[in-house]
């Protein structure tokens, strides 16, 4: 299908790029990306992917917009406090770009529904904030052979890595198991600079765009860390031996998804 004149104008800065061009833009328009979590990471990622013309964007989040979200979750507005985050995000994405079809999942994603959810997407973006969810996303993507971008942010630090089936370690290769509840601070307890979500979430969007268009090198086999205090990026080469991994290794011991218990403070803490 040929691009319309409006599309040529909208995506002109992509089309100009030798690496993207009309072909790459068409790939983006035909692509399906799922963003899990419409928060600090998911907000900028969703905005950039919608602006880039990713044809189908799924967004999953069970929560509603809270005043305390607005310091960093830039897809939501003050007027949308109390509204479902997925609806608020859909509104913003469609306002940016009517080319984009937004699928909303206002649901608690868990071991019973995640595999089915990710199955119809080409690339998954993990924008969740807790470790059980991050391991669930990882394991489901390994099982469904889906590429995904993992990311985390806390205080003045952020990091991300990309998993592509068969091309390098998964999140579990590196981190093995979720830490016990409260053993490691989450950004709710420790705080985070709002712009950190912008830095890391935008890098996740960049990984998705590069995966879809086939441009350049992804963060497969690497963990990219960012320290805003030192204003330094550090690209850590990850061990390439994945044979012993419990989920993506040669003899996986995890063959069914599990819902790990959530940190209790996350349930109690109320703003």
């Amino acid at each position: 299908m040929a691009l319309t004149d409006k599309q040529i104008e909208r995506y002109s800065r992509h089309i100009i790029l030798k690496e993207i061009g009309v072909k790459g833009q068409k790939k983006l328009l035909n692509a399906k990306v799922l963003i899990i979590g419409a928060g600090g990471l998911g907000s900028p990622a969703a905005l950039y992917l919608a602006a880039a013309g990713v044809g189908t964007i799924g967004i999953a989040d069970a929560d509603v917009v809270d005043l305390s979200n607005l310091q960093r979750q830039v897809i939501h507005t003050t007027a949308n406090i109390g509204k479902a985050k997925v609806e608020s995000a859909k509104e913003a994405m469609e306002a940016i770009n009517p080319d984009v079809k937004v699928n909303v999942y206002q649901t608690f994603v868990d071991s019973t529904n995640i595999r089915e959810l990710i199955r119809e997407y080409d690339f998954i973006l993990d924008g969740t904030d807790n470790f059980p969810a991050k391991f669930l996303v990882n394991d489901a993507c390994v099982m469904e052979k889906k590429p995904f971008s993992h990311a985390g942010i806390i205080r003045f630090k952020g990091q991300l890595m990309t998993y592509v089936p068969g091309q390098g370690p998964c999140y579990r290769c590196v981190f093995k198991n979720p830490p016990p509840a409260d053993a490691v601070p989450t950004c709710k307890q420790a705080g985070v600079v709002g712009a950190m979500g912008g830095v890391i979430g935008s890098l996740q969007a960049m990984e998705a765009i590069k995966y879809i268009t086939g441009v350049g090198e992804l963060l497969t086999g690497y963990l990219l860390t960012y320290d805003a205090i030192k204003q330094e990026f550090h690209k850590v080469k990850l061990p390439s031996n994945t044979h012993s991994c419990a989920v993506c290794g040669d003899n996986p011991t995890i063959t069914e998804l599990v819902d790990y218990a959530q940190p209790t403070c996350e349930l109690k803490q109320k703003h």
């Binding site: 104008e9 800065r13 100009i16 061009g21 009309v22």
Partner: peptide, 14 residues
């Protein structure tokens, strides 16, 4: 500019 080049590029890619 830059639609001169953009238009040319769109056509040549076809």
């Amino acid at each position: 500019c830059p639609n001169t080049f953009v238009k040319a590029k769109v056509v040549i890619e076809e």
